[in-house]
Simulated assay, not measured.
Amino acid sequence: MITVRHSQDRGRANFGWLDSKHTFSFGSYYDADYMGFSALRVINDDIVQAGAGFDTHGHRDMEIISYVLEGTIEHKDSEGNVQSLPAGEFQLMSAGKGIYHSEYNGSATDELRFLQIWIQPNEFGKEPGYQQKNFGRSSGITTVATPDGRDGTLQIKQDASLHQLILEPGTEHSFEILEGRNLYIHQVQGTLQVGSSSLDAGDGAKVESEAKVLLANRSSEKVTALLFDLP
């Protein structure tokens, strides 16, 4: 079963310096039907104005992934990590037993846009951790995060994997889903055909009780999506 959630149906919060679209319930946006999916709890599509950002705040027992679409994040945390995260890079911060951090738009003139993703861990009270990597823009499936950090992927504290899908025009990919697993697709760029459904940028789809799903680019533009393989 494939259930599509269109971009325009997401929650929204606009504070002037921040314009955020919420796939799942977050902050003042609440929808009992969209509290998350499996271990996936948050996908926020954030646009941060030049020179603005999130002041120092805390998290615990959450796996927090940032994927920069435009601009640069300036990151600083209580573990001593001071990093710049440019467009195209993934960051995984394991909050563990507790961490404080701030995130700012590194430009004085241009907007920052990034996806803020929260995944609930299956280990609690552990030491905080920080990882950051650019996985490139190769066509096909590129694995970004895995439970064991294999093959240079980011290591996440959950039985979940994150994949980057890039399809050239006129190409397709058959994604196999193991029995008992769930798949969530977040469309980043272009139009992706998911079985008989179509996803545009900002759309999402829950894939449940399926052994495989055909992902196809029938358009004339490149397609980018994130695939979450979940328990």
Rank of each mutant, 00 (worst) to 15 (best):
E208L: 11
R113Q: 09
I65N: 02
I2S: 06
L18Y: 01
S219N: 07
A52T: 13
H59P: 08
S220F: 10
F135N: 07
I73N: 00
S94Y: 02
M1Q: 10
A211T: 13
A32K: 12
I64R: 05
L154N: 00
V42P: 01
F114L: 12
L167R: 06
V188Q: 10
L167T: 03
F175C: 12
F114A: 06
L85M: 08
F90I: 04
T191Q: 10
G195W: 01
P86A: 12
A160S: 13
S161F: 04
N14W: 04
Q116G: 14
I156R: 00
H173K: 13
H57R: 08
K133D: 14
T56M: 05
A201R: 03
D110N: 14
S94E: 11
S66P: 00
L192P: 01
R181T: 02
P169L: 07
S25I: 03
I64K: 01
Q189C: 09
T191L: 01
A201H: 03
I117M: 13
H163K: 05
F37K: 02
I185D: 04
T171Q: 08
V48D: 02
R150G: 08
I177L: 09
L215V: 05
F26G: 00
P128S: 09
H75N: 09
D19A: 13
E123Y: 09
Y100H: 12
E168D: 10
G98N: 04
E210M: 07
E172K: 14
N81A: 07
H75V: 03
G98I: 05
T146R: 12
L214D: 09
F124W: 12
Y34H: 15
D31F: 08
K97N: 14
R12M: 08
L192Q: 01
E127I: 06
S198I: 06
E168V: 15
E79K: 12
G149D: 13
G202V: 06
V68W: 12
I2E: 02
P231Y: 13
L18E: 00
D200S: 13
S197A: 13
G149Q: 11
A39I: 11
G140K: 10
T72N: 03
L112F: 04
G88I: 03
Q91N: 06
H75L: 04
I119L: 10
R137L: 04
D31K: 11
V223E: 05
L40Y: 09
T3L: 12
Q8R: 15
L69H: 07
K157C: 06
P169R: 10
M1I: 15
K206N: 15
G170Q: 15
V4Y: 09
S28H: 12
Q49V: 04
G58I: 02
I185L: 15
H6G: 11
R218G: 09
S139G: 12
L92C: 05
G125W: 09
Q131P: 10
D33L: 06
I119W: 01
T72G: 08
H6A: 07
R181D: 05
S25Q: 02
G202P: 06
F24T: 01
L85W: 00
G129R: 02
G96S: 08
S219Y: 04
E79P: 02
G202E: 10
L165A: 05
D203C: 03
I43E: 00
E168C: 09
G71S: 03
P86E: 13
S102P: 02
R41P: 03
G96I: 01
Q83H: 04
T224Y: 08
R41T: 02
S7G: 12
L115A: 08
Y104L: 11
E172S: 11
E63H: 07
G125N: 09
G96K: 00
E63K: 14
